[in-house]
């Protein structure tokens, strides 16, 4: 999209608003508000779409290809990460037509193991960094954490924002931290986790989304998965509105990743409906939309097997991680 096609009314030169804390605040607080009741009603209405037969088959494969297969436990082992990598490459070993997932998502110390497990399959390796999940560390430690993951071979970095700074209104601090992490990422793509469960209002979700996009994040991501509520449908919708509006204003397309709480194929399909009708079909692609999930993949696979064979299988017919 070139500059002439910009949406009317969104002409604020976005890359210029971070001159000072004051100008950043003016910009973020000048964004149109979000009416909570209306936003939730709209998301609920989209959730009633009935996606059946051929549409369901398309949606299931698309959803599988968008999964960031995740394990983020203190008890993670190399064996578990290798198993995850194998599953990411061949989610359904009995069916070669099943697409691979988008990425595996691990802690930085598991990057090398994950990288070896996915090999040259095209599955990306994402690492959470910047003192995930709380984000409570000094900036140089966060940057070292990031560089460490990138050096180990991570293709993507999932960082967390400093919610304390954001909620207390120190927007420039948050902005500069994201800019610094983006620099530390080098060639790796940066996903910015807003931890929407701690942001309390949809207005804040919209502001944090814009802040992350202005600072150069490639993706905005709802949650760490360690805080509830995580990726609710209205939150994902607000973020999709933000990336839609950002592209109209700047020509730059940003991805969205809901993470945490999406466990069923049905929920995943609701998310795809929202992507389709709010941001538009340009985002129906693993480059622009991801699901951060662990248990979701198995339900997608069981639904896929049901659709292709006509029979329901049980959890014993898909692999445990």
């Amino acid at each position: 999209m070139d500059a002439e096609e910009h949406a009317p009314g969104t002409t604020a030169a976005p890359l210029d608003v971070a001159r000072s804390d004051a100008s950043l605040r003016r910009f973020l607080h000048g964004l149109p508000g979000v009416d909570q009741v209306g936003a939730e009603a709209r998301a609920a209405a989209l959730g009633t779409r009935s996606i059946k037969t051929t549409a369901k088959a398309t949606a299931l494969d698309l959803a599988i290809s968008m999964v960031d297969l995740t394990t983020l436990e203190g008890a993670d082992t190399q064996g578990k990460v290798r198993a995850l990598g194998a599953k990411a490459v061949h989610p359904d070993p009995s069916d070669a037509s099943c697409p691979r997932v988008a990425a595996v998502c691990v802690y930085p110390d598991m990057v090398a193991t994950a990288k070896a497990a996915v090999g040259a399959s095209g599955v990306k390796v994402a690492a959470v960094a910047t003192a995930f999940p709380s984000g409570r560390a000094a900036l140089d430690i966060k940057l070292a954490d990031t560089r460490d993951a990138v050096e180990a071979g991570a293709d993507e970095i999932d960082m967390v924002i400093d919610r304390g700074a954001f909620l207390s209104g120190r927007y420039l601090e948050v902005y500069e931290e994201i800019v610094a992490v983006r620099e530390a990422c080098g060639p790796a793509h940066l996903k910015v986790i807003l931890e929407t469960g701690e942001l309390a209002t949809y207005d804040n979700v919209r502001r944090a989304s814009w802040l992350a996009m202005l600072a150069g994040g490639h993706f905005i991501k709802t949650s760490t998965g360690k805080v509830q509520p995580a990726a609710t449908l209205p939150v994902t919708m607000i973020m999709l509105e933000a990336v839609r509006d950002f592209r109209e204003a700047t020509g730059v397309q940003i991805g969205v990743k809901p993470a945490g709480g999406i466990r069923s194929a049905k929920d995943a399909i609701k998310n795809l409906v929202v992507v389709n009708e709010v941001a538009g079909p340009d985002w129906l692609d693993p480059d622009w939309f991801r699901f951060g999930a662990s248990t979701l993949l198995n339900d997608l696979l069981m639904q896929r097997i049901k659709l292709t064979t006509g029979r329901y299988t049980g959890p014993d017919y898909v692999t445990v991680d």
Partner: peptide
């Protein structure tokens, strides 16, 4: 990857 169109099948 080619863009996927999510055409909703009839759901009568």
């Amino acid at each position: 990857m080619a863009r996927t169109e999510l055409e909703y099948a009839p759901a009568p």
